[in-house]
Design a protein around this nucleic acid. Structure first.
Lengths: 204, 204
DNA sequence: GTGCACATACCGACTGGTCGGTCCGTTCGC
DNA sequence: GCGAACGGACCGACCAGTCGGTATGTGCAC
């Protein structure tokens, strides 16, 4: 990639061939699943040929792996930004959980692919992805544990369970959310954050 | 199937060929995914040949469809049993939600297959499965709406959202639960039920 | 009680088609 | 003129489903 194309790529995400490949692959994987999408379909949709694809990516697997990387980097970055602010814990958690819902819906295809096709990745790459995801969860869990120590949140439930409970809901958005629904992404995010915080209230 | 084998089949689930096929197929689909599992592998694991499989099932698709049917029938039946008892609403909901977690974990492979391979089904069969699942959710939602009308549960959140929130968590159990973990299925079920009920408490 | 008609329960070689990946060729910017 | 960025024909592997066959009952006529 030359300087010029690199600069252009930042402004227009689909301007370069590798980005366009990633973009159409995500759409196709989300719609038909990884195994049902042939490399031929991907390159045709991107307006190139196999030669181009295998020039930029090692394998079909590699394409999937890059999609995962993109999702994880974006979410981790976003969480980090919120977690370190000076806002009260409750507010930080509320913002973080609303945000993760909103960004999950904004990148619904990436997320569908993530949970539908994760197990098609090679063992090696799967391990890497899982490790990254775990790091993200641990960062999030830190917020909850902080509140449990301070007494703001109920401490009779392991933070792990809370995390799995909440992120289960978030990760399943892809299987039912439709843009045509009556609620906006932000509204759903706020509902979800409310439900999380309500379930964390100490028992009276 | 003769009388004798039919009787035996009730006691020993894997005694007949079709049941054994369903059983090994579930395991293989859960481990490797639908598309990555060849019919040849399935029949070899079941100790029969393709001829046998295509004698009992119309297609590979059909095998998957039967797995879904089994899961849905079991869960609907269980919910119905709890929903109609005379116990207080709060208890009925608690039991129903604990139960669904416990039975999801007890049949973890079925559930993994359900969410990983659902979209590999033919459009037609997918519609049928989704309709059945919707009916189940609606029955469950009925319980929540009942509590919202009576004032037992908070009414400022749509029951739909609560359902999607809770079942998202339940359906994602398959992606993280390991039998080797420190919590039993029942303990997790009780935690989940607690969290659901806590998030439903009216705001004080 | 024995032979016949028919059905159920399988077996396994084979086919038509698909797909990931390779490899050699070509174009073009610098 | 050289390397990066592609094009596209081709290969070997694999796979769902088919189909003609066999073997083991099961009911029934006589």
């Amino acid at each position: 990639m030359t300087r010029a194309t690199a600069r252009k790529a930042e402004a227009e995400p689909d301007a370069t061939v590798p980005r366009r490949l990633l973009s159409v692959a995500t759409k196709l994987f989300a719609k038909k699943g990884f195994d049902r999408t042939s490399v031929q379909e991907i390159v045709e949709a991107a307006g190139v040929t196999k030669g181009a694809m295998y020039h930029y990516f090692d394998s079909k697997d590699d394409l999937l792996y890059e999609i995962y990387g993109r999702v994880l980097r974006a979410q981790t970055e976003q969480l980090e930004k919120v977690a370190v602010t000076e806002a009260p814990l409750r507010e930080r958690l509320r913002t973080a959980s609303t945000d993760v819902v909103v960004s999950t819906i904004a990148n619904l295809d990436d997320n569908k692919v993530f949970w539908q096709s994760m197990h098609q990745l090679s063992q090696d790459k799967q391990r890497t992805v899982r490790a990254e995801r775990r790091k993200y969860h641990e960062r999030f869990r830190g917020l909850i544990e902080e509140g449990q120590r301070s007494g703001e949140f109920r401490a009779d439930k392991p933070a792990d369970i809370i995390i799995d409970f909440f992120f289960g809901s978030v990760h399943h958005l892809g299987s039912w959310y439709r843009r045509s629904g009556s609620l906006s992404a932000r509204e759903i995010g706020e509902h979800y954050a409310d439900l999380l915080l309500a379930s964390l209230r100490p028992e009276s």
